[in-house]
Amino acid sequence: MTASRDAILKRVNDALAPLKERAPYPEFDDDVAVMPALDRNGDLWTAFCERAKLVHGTPLSGKPAVLADWLHGQNLHHGYCDPELLPLFGEALAAAGCAVETIFDRARVDEYQFGITRAEAAIAETGSLVLTDATTSSRLAALAPWTHVAVLKRGQIFADVADALKKMPVDPNVIWCTGPSRTADVEGILIEGVHGPGVQVAFLLE
């Protein structure tokens, strides 16, 4: 096995040895690829909402009852809730007639209509939610149900991709979710909800 490693590295060395010069690492600013249209000084949640809607995301904000009512309105009455969020949302959910479990049982994957977990952050420029292992109580609960709700607080919103990269959390599984899961494999027709959520909610808890 180390033989193959050494063989490959030797080939690479031999391939590069004859080069008289190597291309230098170019100079550029971190925000070189940031869309100039973004207003960095404006309200980041407003900017986030605008961009999230462009990618068919569903931004909501308010007290826990707002989310509970929305779920009820969508006719979603059974799902998963991060145990750490339960003290905040439990009462409102129960009042809206939504039953939640705090352990995701993979054997009953089809029974969860929604999953509520915490977001690590959001990115205004792209309308993306940032999920991590540290803040996601169950990867499957944030992925398998048709509706995923990521709960977010003000102050957790990055202005742009460059900023989010700079402050990337140390975590083995950082995922930027930009709108619902989608495909255009069949005749280029956009279909949402392939393997991941068909509805991606960003809930700003006030």
Binding site: M35, T126, A134, T136, P172, N173, I175, T178
Partner: peptide, 23 residues
């Protein structure tokens, strides 16, 4: 595909963390 970012951009830095049930 003409998207600003794809739906998922995943940064994988190893096996799951200790307190994560899935993965």
């Amino acid at each position: 595909t003409g998207q600003q970012l794809t739906s998922y951009t995943e940064f994988i830095g190893g096996a799951r963390s200790a307190n994560q049930p899935d993965g």
